[in-house]
Design a binder for these strands. Structure first.
Length: 581
RNA sequence: GCGCCCGUAGCUCAGCAGGAUAGAGCAUCGGAUUCCUAAUCCGGGGGUCACAGGUUCGAAUCCUGUCGGGCGCGCCA
């Protein structure tokens, strides 16, 4: 595993050393808190390559004014060979300009590291379990699942790229009542396949056509063996077969989006293994589960409400509104009761847990966080646990909302959408919005106005680069780093932006926000397109120059490395970097 | 009633764990194509960052409250 050292980290160390030197000289009092000191690219490139707020942050505790402190620091920094100028600006920022050689070195680093450029050691090999999708196995994937699937998958890749060991996990809810409904629905299709007139699908069962092949397969295999049989004889079998068929379908749908999980954990197996009971015993022993009465639901009146004694988890101790039942009155596990045990199982194989959930499950975040905290801390191994909520996607077609109802069988499937607009568009679009904000997804727009789609913009930049490399090769000119010092300010600006990539990766990984990579790639593509177009106004600025093979080689080298960074970024997002459009 | 998320240009959205003059795309107006792919680029106009307080050298960003929108609030999953 390799890591890409960022320039910013290198300079943070230099500034730290300079501060220590000032302390040693008695200019600064010892022991100043340096946590707030940052080294960043200034928002306005005219200010320089790097800026630090050290003087602003430290002036007060040092009992001096920012400018005086800044002057002391600048005195230490100007001697550095990598620094060409250090200026004090505004209230006390220090702006640094770096030698061209530093940036050219970064460009060579891209070439040397290739697909590994931007990788980070940030994660230090920590095992992170990312659970995402986990759609109920009662039907094909629909668009409601799409955003969480893409965000979760991109986050997993991002964390991997940032040095974590990632487990991609899917929780199969194959134990609840909805699976019985599924089995009954399949039974109906089974009867239908044997020639029984079934008429309208009764309300409460899944009406979708997608269950027909499952019923037909069962009819082929078992004939009319179960047609007149009581439900106990076939339900277990039908459950199993139906779930298996649905999971096969779901995996196929996910594969179309380029998503593959490492682990599919079954709720039914978890229960058979007695995990929820183990968790309950432990929680009872620690007075975190007790038998008590549930309050009546808030917000709407429930007519048949009766208080019943149930085993409750003390989630109120952890900030939840009320204690939550882990078992139903018939003794079976609630979703939460099993989920709590499931999270403990995940925690055994990971150092950190992340769940990606739809916003409609926001109300259950507190209880599961409470449960993980109680169990992992109680057992002496606290596990960081984060639930990322992905907000709803409003599906539109030409501005009109698309109505979806799983019960009525009128939902838009993921497969349809991928078929219609393509995997790359779906993935990139889902990542051009921060996940905690709602988004609209308009088919008409995404398909028809494909040239307004950011994914094409980024891919076009990559394709242009490759077309240029091909053209150069046809003329016998290969990229070369021999004369990089001939690159000018316009080229270096591009290098500087490309050199942000490792920093963007780390920032995005820390914040768990893969969408930042998408926006960064858009910016990088824009910079490249702008650079390219300079050649339209001034032929001397083109990459391919008929009369200067040396400079052409250097520019091709530059272009090739920009392409490499775009590829690496798109790789994280799971979007293809095409070489031709 | 309570909890979570959101509120930034006419529209769709960024804003890098508090930084310098708040940025893109679309739309609109005006330009660039003897060209390495114009699916591109350059420029103009357009903002009380919902509102009101607070924290500090400094707030779109953090805290409190109000308003507006979304999601949720059963032993469902």
């Amino acid at each position: 595993m390799t890591g890409t050292p960022t320039l910013y980290a290198a300079f943070a160390a230099k500034i730290d050393a300079a501060l220590s030197a000032l302390e040693a000289e008695g200019v600064l009092p010892p022991g100043l808190p340096r946590a707030g000191v940052s080294v960043e690219p200034p928002r306005d490139p005219a200010h320089g390559d790097l800026a630090t707020n050290a003087a602003l942050v430290l002036a007060k505790p040092a009992g001096t004014n920012p400018r005086a402190l800044a002057e002391g620091l600048v005195g230490k920094l100007v001697d550095d060979a990598m620094v060409t100028s250090a200026e004090i600006a505004g209230p006390g920022f220090i702006n640094l300009r770096l030698a061209d050689a530093v940036w050219l070195g970064e460009l060579r680093a891209v070439a040397a590291l290739g697909a590994d450029y931007g990788r980070s050691l940030l994660g230090a090999g920590r095992r992170v379990n990312v659970e995402y999708v986990s759609a109920n196995p009662t039907g094909p994937m629909h668009m409601g699942h799409c955003r969480g699937a893409v965000v979760g998958d991109a986050l997993a890749s991002l964390l991997e790229f940032a040095g974590h060991q990632v487990i991609r996990e899917y929780y199969v809810n194959d134990a609840g009542g909805q699976v019985d409904v599924l089995a009954d629905s399949v039974y109906l299709r089974y009867s239908e396949a044997l020639g029984v007139e079934i008429g309208e699908i009764p309300p409460g069962l899944y009406p979708g056509e997608y269950l027909k092949p499952v019923g037909e397969a069962l009819a082929r295999e078992f004939g009319d063996k179960y047609l007149e049989a009581p439900a106990d004889e076939w339900r277990g079998l039908f459950r199993k077969r139906a779930v298996a068929a649905m999971m096969e379908q779901i995996k196929a749908d996910l594969a179309q989006l380029g998503i593959h999980h490492d682990v599919f954990a079954s709720e039914a197996e978890l229960q058979r293994a007695g995990k929820p009971a183990e968790a309950e015993a432990w929680l009872r022993a620690h007075d975190l589960v007790y038998d008590g009465h549930l309050e009546a639901p808030k917000g709407k009146t429930v007519e048949d409400w009766e208080p019943v004694e149930l085993p409750l988890f003390r989630s109120t101790k952890f900030g939840d509104d009320q204690d939550r039942p882990i078992r139903k009155s018939d003794g079976s596990w609630t979703y939460f009761g099993a989920d709590l045990a499931y999270h403990m199982q995940k925690a055994e194989g990971a150092d950190e847990l992340i769940d990606i959930w739809g916003a409609d499950h926001a109300g259950t975040v507190k209880r599961i966080k409470a449960a993980v905290a109680a169990l992992s801390e109680g057992k002496g191994r606290p596990i960081p646990f984060d639930v990322k909520l992905v907000q709803m996607v409003q599906l539109l077609r030409g501005g009109e909302p698309v109505k979806m109802s799983k019960r009525a069988g009128t939902f838009v499937t993921l497969a349809e959408v991928v078929e219609e607009v393509g995997k790359d568009v779906v993935r990139f679009t889902m990542l051009t919005r921060k996940p905690e904000a709602q988004m609209d997804f308009d088919f008409a727009k995404v398909v028809e106005a494909s040239k307004d789609n950011p994914v094409f913009y980024v891919q076009y930049a990559h394709a242009r680069i490759h077309s240029t490399l091909r053209k150069g090769a046809a003329e016998g000119i290969e990229p070369s780093d021999r004369a990089l010092e001939r690159l000018g300010a316009d080229e270096l600006a591009l290098v500087k932006l490309a050199a942000q990539f490792p920093r963007e990766v780390e920032a995005a990984a820390k914040a768990r926000e893969p969408h930042r990579i998408a926006f960064y790639l858009y910016d990088l593509a824009a910079a490249f397109h702008a650079f390219w177009n300079m050649g339209n106004d001034d032929p001397g600025k083109r990459i391919l120059l008929a009369d200067d093979r040396e400079l052409t080689g250097a520019r091709l080298f530059l272009a090739g490395q920009i392409g490499q960074v775009i590829r690496n970024g798109l790789g994280i997002l799971g979007v293809q970097a095409v070489e031709e459009l």
